[in-house]
């Protein structure tokens, strides 16, 4: 287990999230709740409608591959960029832009396809590939049912 930093420490960090998916919204809600400054960017303004009302986050609609949009949305002030859209390629491209153009210190990308995750890692992108973890969670439970 990685310990959660204190609220005071988290409050000094800005997190920039692209893609207001269920994952993006989940990350935004918890990190904002823990004190981080959160900025959310999505191509579709309607995506923000499923966010909780109490969420303290800046929501910006625009293209995550448009450098002006990224700059205006405040990517330069972010220590963390989390690319969480449904599209692996978009997340990889957004991550590369954040790393190479804006020099973001920490960039993490959701990549659902395990093969792609491996090749993007070789490009220097830190990836989160959850489908194998999801399958493992199912299998663990199924094994315990089979042992009953």
């Amino acid at each position: 287990m990685v310990p959660r930093p204190s609220r005071q420490v988290l409050a000094t960090h800005t997190v920039f999230i692209t893609g207001c998916t269920s994952l993006g919204a989940h990350l935004a809600t918890r990190l904002a709740g823990e004190g981080c400054a959160v900025r959310l960017l999505d191509r579709v303004a309607a995506s923000f409608s499923n966010l909780p009302d109490r969420l303290q986050a800046a929501c910006i609609d625009g293209d995550p591959l448009d450098l002006d949009v990224l700059r205006c949305a405040g990517i330069e002030k972010a220590e963390f960029v989390l690319a969480t859209s449904h599209e692996d390629d978009l997340n990889a491209a957004t991550s590369l832009v954040a790393l190479r153009v804006f020099g973001a210190p920490h960039v993490f990308a959701r990549i659902d396809d395990p093969d792609r995750a491996a090749s993007y890692e070789q490009l220097g992108i830190t990836t989160v590939c959850s489908p194998p973890m999801v399958a493992a969670a199912f299998l663990q439970r199924i094994e315990s049912i089979a042992r009953e």
Partner: peptide, 8 residues
Amino acid sequence: FFKLVYRA
């Protein structure tokens, strides 16, 4: 994701 952020 949280693990990566906290660790950083």
